[in-house]
C-alpha cells in the first residue's frame, strides 16, 4: 500500500492563521552560493543580497507543522526591504493568510509574510498571491 504525501489544499487554509517558521543563520556560504548561482550580489561586503532572505523564507516555510501548500501557481508578490541584513544574522519568517477567494479551478490566497531577525526586528515584508488546488473530489 502506498500513501500519498499529505498536501494542504485551498479548503485547509485558515484565514488569519499565523505560521511561524524555525530560524536559520545566514552565512557567507549562502551568500557565495547565491552570488555564483544568480550573478546577483550585495551592494557592500558583509551584507546579504536583498533577494536572498526572501528565497530562504520559501524553504523555511516548509519546516512548519503543516503539510506543504498545494500551489498550482505563484502569481505574484510585493516586497519591501526595511533594513539590511548582515552575514551572521539569524532569520525566521512569520506569515498569515489575509484573503481566500474560491475560483473555478482552485482558489487564490494572499499571504502576508515578514522576515524577522534575531532581535525581533522585521527586516523585510510583503504579500504573496498564490493559486492553490482544491481538494480532489
Amino acid at each position: 500500500m502506498s500513501v500519498a504525501a499529505p498536501r494542504f489544499y485551498f479548503e485547509d487554509v485558515v484565514l488569519q492563521g499565523v505560521l511561524e517558521t524555525p530560524a536559520m543563520t545566514v552565512t557567507e556560504a549562502h551568500v557565495a552560493l547565491y552570488a555564483g548561482l544568480t550573478g546577483d550580489a550585495a551592494h557592500e561586503h558583509g551584507l546579504v543580497p536583498d533577494l536572498l532572505p526572501l528565497c530562504l523564507t520559501t524553504g523555511l516555510g516548509w519546516r512548519v507543522p503543516q503539510p506543504p501548500l498545494a500551489v498550482l501557481a505563484f502569481m505574484g508578490f510585493e516586497w519591501m526591504v526595511d533594513s539590511p541584513l548582515r552575514v551572521g544574522d539569524t532569520i525566521h519568517s512569520r506569515s498569515k493568510t489575509t484573503l481566500k477567494r474560491s475560483m473555478k479551478e482552485g482558489g487564490v490566497i494572499i499571504e502576508e509574510r515578514q522576515v524577522i531577525n534575531q532581535r525581533g526586528e522585521v527586516v523585510q515584508h510583503g504579500k504573496f498571491t498564490f493559486l492553490v488546488a482544491k481538494r480532489p473530489a
Binding site: D50, W79, M80
Partner: peptide, 20 residues
Amino acid sequence: FTRATQGFATLAFVGLRWKF
C-alpha cells in the same frame, strides 16, 4: 541587470512589485 548596464550607485534595494 548587472550585466545589462553600468552599475548604479545603489545604496539600498527598497522594494518590488512582481508578476509571474
